[in-house]
């Protein structure tokens, strides 16, 4: 807990990327034979930056994220977290927000949010306090006693974000967290995420196939190609922060998003 109390940017020097994939190659076996999911992928997310990974389906972006999370051991290459190669999940430095929220259905919002603390053996009173604070950050303090099935899809995803943030992670990995939501809710969620992130400024790696979302949220967008999964291009998004949703209508925004779109299109 002590380590998490420090400001996140104080860990390591600015030159060390918060999280890095070095020479990642990943193969898996199917009935049809071996599939090369990722080939020699190198990605580094600088500290305090918001990075998105986009690409067509089958480009291995979700596999890459699971490798970065330490949940999927790669066939070759290594993952570096805050400058050192550590295998497996590292819950004190890294949190993951999954597709479909992944809430435990038999637990209330509060008990879901405080789950990471429970695993660490934090006493109940303390985890309830922190859990309520985390729920308040995503505007759900009055839904603390609700079960996931009693919440809307957007609310469930906010609970999942609160649960990731309660870990006070230096690195937050998000795997298409808003993918199952309708467009309106998705952009609302993006806006809320940016508001939260402006207060925290940790490192985020965000996987999505929605280019508007990627452009709106990120400092840099990594475009991947499929068969085999590899990195095609890195596009710097030099839009000013803080950003509001209106920025999506500016010429500069549309220009950047169209560039991403052409990169993806060029593969087909």
């Amino acid at each position: 807990m002590q380590a998490n109390a420090e400001p996140i940017t104080a860990r390591g020097t600015a030159e060390v990327p918060a999280i890095e994939a070095r020479g990642i190659t990943h193969r898996y076996h199917t009935a049809q034979g071996e599939v090369l999911a990722l080939e020699d992928v190198n990605v580094a997310a600088p500290q305090g930056k918001f990075i998105s990974i986009v690409g067509p389906s089958g480009c291995g972006k979700s596999s890459l994220l699971m490798i970065l999370a330490g949940l999927l051991p790669p066939s070759e290459g290594e993952r570096l977290l805050l400058g050192s190669a550590r295998s497996g999940p590292q819950p004190r430095d890294l949190a993951v927000a999954f597709q479909d929220a992944c809430l435990l259905p038999w637990r209330t919002s509060l008990d879901n949010v405080s789950f990471p603390l429970e695993l660490r053996g934090v006493p109940k009173a303390e985890r309830n306090t922190q859990g309520r604070e985390a729920l308040a950050k995503v505007g759900l303090e009055s839904f603390a006693d609700r079960y996931p099935r009693e919440l809307s899809g957007g609310m469930r995803q906010r609970v999942a974000v609160a649960r990731a943030l309660i870990q006070k992670p230096a690195v937050l990995l998000m795997d298409e967290p808003f993918g199952a939501l309708d467009e309106q809710t998705r952009m609302d969620m993006g806006e809320q995420l940016l508001t939260l992130w402006d207060q925290i400024r940790n490192t985020v790696v965000f996987v999505t196939h929605n280019l508007t979302e990627a452009t709106y949220l990120s400092d840099e967008v990594i475009v991947m190609a499929a068969h085999p999964g590899r990195i095609l291009e890195r596009v710097t998004i030099d839009l000013p922060r803080p950003r509001s949703i209106e920025i999506t209508e500016t010429e500069q925004f549309i220009h950047l998003r169209n560039r991403l779109w052409r990169l993806i299109r060029s593969q087909e």
Binding site: G70, L71, P89, Q90, P91, A95, F98, F115, P116
Partner: peptide
């Protein structure tokens, strides 16, 4: 859900 729990240590 199991993978989620694993990611949280």
């Amino acid at each position: 859900l199991v993978r989620m729990a694993r990611s949280q240590g």
